[in-house]
Each structure stands twice: as structure tokens, then as C-alpha cells.
Computed example of a mutant assay.
Amino acid sequence: MNTTSNKIIAMIPARYQASRFPGKLMQDLNGKTVIQRTYEAAVNTGLFQEVFVVTDSDIIFEEIIRNGGKAIKSKQEHECGSDRIAEAVENMDVDIVLNVQGDEPLIDHQSLQKLLQVFEGDTEKRIDLASLKTPMHESEEITNPNNVKVITNKDNFALYFSRFPVPYPRDTDARVTYYKHIGVYAFRKQALMDFHQLPMLSLEAAEKIECIRYLEYGKSIKMVETDFRGIGIDTAEDLEKARKLFN
């Protein structure tokens, strides 16, 4: 459980419609729906005072409530998860909000704990949000545009995110490590509210990566390295992999 004075909650943004796999969050994952598995995994970490699913879907809302969980129905349509969460937390008395992906039911307690620890010594509130990265070694993985790459400075603050392999390896002897961005975020509430108010700029629009907006407006993103690789359920094949892992 959180031992600092910060009030920390987890939010799980959940859309029913998904372009590649519609209704994926309501698919059966060994006796429970994907979204229910994700919700229970977040609660079971013991890291949060409260956990909520925030959704535009009556089906998902009712699934969580029926199973004794906490859910919030979005009042408006939202382009991204950050906007959906910002609407939900606007009138809540919270300090840190952790965004858990609804289609990633395998949650690593240690990674989330490391993410939240970033804020413990940050008394001057220089860190606006924190996120995870993991090293990539295979060329196919590095060049895949579905894998968002992140580059950082020497203190592990994000410099840029891209679907393109950055940095470009002009000097092949430089032995650069490529890092994949894992889309789990811990936000200060104010950074989240600022994001919600600020319009999208050209870099975010070009890459279709929402966290670029924070960088374009001068927010600081602390990256935390992890070796944990969950499984995001984007296809029917991913769901089968998850079923095997749960077995």
C-alpha cells in the first residue's frame, strides 16, 4: 500500500470499440472477462487507495459494477485515454493517477511500484509524469512502427518518442540500446488536467503518440526501465497467448 502522503489511485480507461479487435475487453480470459482480470490485477497490487475503470460503454460499466468493482461512465467522447481519465479525476482529491491499460491483464507489481517511487523524493514536483521503457534487441522489433521508441537524456528524462527507430544508427559502432515505450503512466493530477486543456500540436498529430503532447508543452517525463513485458491484447492471437499464460 502507498506509504507516502500522496493519495494514489489507478484508472483503467476502457473503450468497447477497438479498431483491430472490437469488444476485446469483454472476451473470456479463462473464466473472467479481460477487463475484469485487469481490474482485479490492479487492485491486487495493493499499491492504490482506489481503482476505477473509466469507460464510454454501458456493457463494460455494468460488468465491473456487477462484479463488485468501481467504474465511472464518461460523459463525453474522448480521443485518448488521458482525456478520458482527466474528465473522471477533475473533481477528485488525488495527487498521483496511474493509468493502467485495460487490455493488459498481466500487471507487474514491481514495475508499478518503481514507477510510483519516482514521486517520493520529488518534493519540488519537477516530475510531471513517469512511464516505463524496456530494452529491445531484435531488428524486427526495433523497426516495427507499432513499437513506440523512446530516447532519454542521461537522467532518464524523455527527449522524444517515435514510431521510427531513433536514434538513426549512422555510426554502427556506437552500440546504442533501443528502448520500447510501455504505455503505463503515473501522472501528477495537474499535468493530466493541463494535457486535457491543451490542443494537439503537429508532432503528436504526425506520430499519433499522445505522450508527445506533454513534451511539446514542456512537461517532464521520467522514464523507468523494466524487464517486464506484459501482453497487450490487440488481436485474437494475443488473447490466445494470454490464455496460455494464465493457465
Rank of each mutant, 00 (worst) to 15 (best):
T33H: 11
G102T: 03
V100M: 11
A18M: 13
G68A: 13
V53M: 05
D56T: 07
A18G: 08
A41H: 04
G81S: 15
I12K: 05
L115F: 05
I107Y: 10
Y16M: 06
I35M: 08
F48H: 07
D108E: 15
N91A: 12
H78K: 08
E63Y: 05
A14F: 02
D83S: 13
L112T: 06
F21C: 10
I64L: 10
T55A: 08
T55V: 06
G69I: 03
E104H: 06
K24P: 01
S82M: 12
I64H: 09
A10H: 06
I72A: 05
M92S: 08
S57C: 05
G23W: 06
P13V: 03
K24E: 08
Q113M: 12
F119A: 00
E90M: 13
G69S: 06
N44L: 00
A88H: 07
Q101V: 10
N91V: 03
N30A: 15
F119L: 05
Y39G: 12
S74L: 10
N67C: 12
P13N: 04
S74A: 15
N91Q: 13
T38Y: 10
N44K: 14
D83C: 11
T45Q: 01
G81C: 12
Q49P: 08
F48R: 05
N99H: 14
L29V: 12
I72W: 05
N30P: 06
D58Q: 13
V118D: 05
V34A: 13
S74G: 09
V51G: 02
Q110M: 14
G31P: 12
E79H: 09
L98I: 14
Q49H: 14
L47P: 10
V43E: 07
G68L: 09
I85P: 04
S57P: 05
V51I: 02
T45N: 04
I96A: 05
P13Y: 00
S57I: 02
G31L: 10
K70A: 09
E120K: 06
I59H: 09
I72L: 13
A10V: 03
L106S: 11
I9F: 11
I12E: 06
A14S: 15
H78T: 07
D83F: 01
D28Q: 11
V97H: 00
E63W: 03
S57Y: 03
G68D: 10
V94I: 14
E104C: 15
E62F: 07
A41Q: 07
V97I: 15
V43L: 02
I60L: 05
P22S: 08
L98F: 05
D58E: 14
V43W: 00
L98A: 15
I9V: 15
C80I: 11
V89E: 09
P22K: 03
P22A: 00
A41M: 04
E120F: 01
Q17S: 12
E79V: 10
A88I: 00
L115Q: 04
K73N: 05
I9P: 08
F52E: 02
A86H: 04
D28G: 09
I64E: 04
D95V: 13
N99E: 11
K75V: 12
Y16V: 00
R15S: 15
A86R: 02
E120Y: 07
F61D: 00
D108K: 11
I59E: 15
